[in-house]
Design a protein around this nucleic acid. Structure first.
Lengths: 154, 154
DNA sequence: TTCGTAAATGCAATCATGTTGCATTAGTAT
DNA sequence: ATACTAATGCAACATGATTGCATTTACGAA
């Protein structure tokens, strides 16, 4: 996972995608790279009160278009965004990994290390992408610490 | 196949789940059993103008609770509902099959015949259910012969 | 068959998320 | 420093999800 980025690296990232280096974008990048779960727009709003909802909305959209992040829906049908691993390019995402929805803390985890097995569809279906979802309890909410920290989504 | 149900069978179904046999519920059941794709609430609203949105909302919820239908989100994060196959009970759904989202007609197909292979999760994750999504073109929209309609249903 | 009761419905209202248009601000190349 | 365009903020709207409450209806009991 591309963790531990600093501000300069985020600026490079924006520059690479021909996006202007604005404070809002850098803060969004910083927050999304810092956590290991996907982030919804309400998540971002609750932290960055000073940035307009629409700005966040457009930042997330342009990041997705550029292949910086990818979108995944949680159990409520709300869009969550997570940093893309290598292999994502503009308009061409490779997020064919497992998305784990924790039913307790509502966190959405992207488990990149799991690759999907080959799937055979009935005749006529022409798939362009697959996504595997699992729901249940994440490590934090299961076993050891039953006290979930509803810090992620709500 | 569980197709071709008549009104009496729908009444039996409602009775089995201790639900009163109302006109609205019978019409919803009839419509959902008649089509081979999942149905969103807006779909139902557009057809049954005389039934209140909230009534439809509650009918869908109680059907899902009882294990009559199951919920699946489409590409827009909108809830779609499909009739459950055998194996669904109250608060215990078995919809671990593939959901195909057509990007053209927006149809959501439940491909029951595809069973998921075993998935190994990282330590700590305790999954209770899996769902596999695919997006692309359905047989009708891809130009393939629309003759053989694969039996979808949950 | 009527009646009583709980369930089901309709209506109004509200919340949450997503989305567009437009005027203003700010990043950046020159 | 200037100018041009991208980015932002604000207002407004769209859609789907959700709750509270008054009214109606299904259905078992009298």
């Amino acid at each position: 996972m591309a963790q531990g980025k600093n501000t300069y690296q985020f600026e490079d990232l924006l520059e690479k995608h021909q996006l202007k280096k604005t404070g809002a974008r850098l803060r969004v990048l910083s927050m999304m790279y810092a956590k290991n779960t996907a982030t919804s727009q309400p998540d971002l709003e609750s932290v960055m009160h000073d940035i307009d909802r629409v700005t966040l909305y457009r930042i997330l959209n342009v990041f997705e278009e550029k292949g910086i992040i990818h979108k995944v829906f949680d159990l409520n049908g709300t869009a969550n965004y997570a940093v893309c691993s290598s292999g994502c390019h503009e308009h061409h995402h490779h997020d064919e990994h497992l998305h784990f929805n924790c039913t307790a803390c509502k966190g959405v985890f992207c488990l990149n290390e799991l690759s999907l097995p080959a799937i055979n569809l009935p005749t006529g279906f022409q798939p362009t992408g697959f996504t595997l979802y699992a729901s249940g309890l994440c490590p934090k909410c299961s076993g050891a610490s039953p006290k979930s920290s509803p810090k992620e989504r709500t």
